[in-house]
C-alpha cells in the first residue's frame, strides 16, 4: 500500500489560514489503513483546526471517499465541494492531484506527506519496500529490492560500507546485499548474482502511463 504521514499541525494551519469554509476530504483506502488520512483522521484534524482557529474564523466540513485516485468516487463530492472555499486532501499525492484536477477552481491543500510504498509490520508500523523504479529485479535478488532496501540503490552490492550485516548509514538498517547474499546462498542460487548487473533503466524519471493490453482501443476512443 501507499504509506503517508500526517503533516505537522502548524503547517496545515498555516495553509488553511484565510479560508472561511474548508472541506476536509479523506480517502478510504491506503491512507486509511496506515492511519494517516481515513475518516477517523479527518475528524481528528477538523477538531484540531476548529479548536485552534475558532468558530468565527473557519467552518469545516468532512467527507471521506472510497478512493481519491478514482474519478468515479470524486464525482460524489461535486455537489458538496461547491459550498467550500478550499479543500484539504488527506489522500496520497496521487489522490490530492486527482482531487485538484476534479475541482480546478478550488485551492486543494495537502494534509499528509506521502512517504512510500510499503508493508504493514504491525498496527501503526510500516516499512518501505518498493520505489516503483519500473524495472523489477526481485527475481535476481532473492525477493529483496536493492533499489529500495540498499541506501545507495546498488545493483552489484554490497558496497565497502557493509558492516557485519548492517548498512553503513545505521546499525539498525540491515545491509540489503548482505541479506540478498544470505537468502540466495541458502537457496543455492548464488549464480544469480555472479554476473555484472547492467546499468538500470530509470523509467521513473518521467511521468508514466500504462494501458493494459486489451484496453488500447477503448482508451483511444475515450481520448477521441
Amino acid at each position: 500500500m501507499i504509506v503517508a504521514e500526517r503533516k505537522p499541525f502548524e503547517e496545515i494551519k498555516a495553509m488553511v489560514a484565510g479560508y472561511k469554509r474548508v472541506l476536509t476530504v479523506g480517502c478510504g483506502t491506503c491512507v486509511a489503513v496506515c492511519l494517516a488520512g481515513g475518516s477517523k483522521e479527518v475528524a481528528t484534524l477538523n477538531a484540531e483546526l476548529q479548536l485552534a482557529l475558532g468558530k468565527d474564523e473557519i467552518s469545516l466540513g468532512a467527507a471521506t471517499v472510497e478512493r481519491q485516485c478514482d474519478m468515479e468516487f470524486l464525482a460524489e463530492l461535486d455537489s458538496l465541494a461547491v459550498e467550500y472555499d478550499a479543500l484539504i486532501s488527506m489522500a496520497c499525492g496521487a489522490g490530492i492531484q486527482f482531487l485538484a484536477e476534479r475541482f480546478p477552481d478550488k485551492p486543494v491543500l495537502p494534509a499528509v506527506d506521502t512517504s512510500f510504498i510499503g508493508v504493514n509490520l504491525d498496527v501503526g508500523w510500516y516499512e518501505e519496500k518498493c520505489r516503483a523504479c519500473g524495472t523489477c529485479v526481485l527475481g535476481m535478488t532473492g525477493g529483496i529490492c536493492p533499489v529500495t532496501m540498499c541506501a545507495k540503490s546498488l545493483f552489484n552490492g554490497p558496497c565497502g560500507g557493509t558492516n557485519n550485516g548492517s548498512c553503513e548509514i545505521n546499525t539498525d538498517q540491515p545491509c540489503a546485499w548482505y541479506r540478498i547474499y544470505e537468502r540466495l546462498s541458502a537457496q543455492g542460487r548464488l549464480e544469480q548474482i555472479m554476473e555484472v548487473s547492467p546499468a538500470n533503466d530509470w523509467s521513473n524519471q518521467k511521468p508514466r502511463k500504462i494501458i493494459q493490453p486489451g484496453y488500447q482501443e477503448r482508451i483511444k476512443a475515450l481520448q477521441g
Binding site: 541506501a151 545507495k152 540503490s153 552489484n156 552490492g157 565497502g160 553503513e168 548487473s197 546499468a199
Partner: peptide, 24 residues
Amino acid sequence: LSGDHQMFGDHPHAKGVYDIDSMQ
C-alpha cells in the same frame, strides 16, 4: 567507487545520485 553515503557529510539532505554503481 560507490562513495560514502551523503548522510555522513556536510550536506546530509543532498540527493544521492547512484544512477549507476561502481561495478557499472
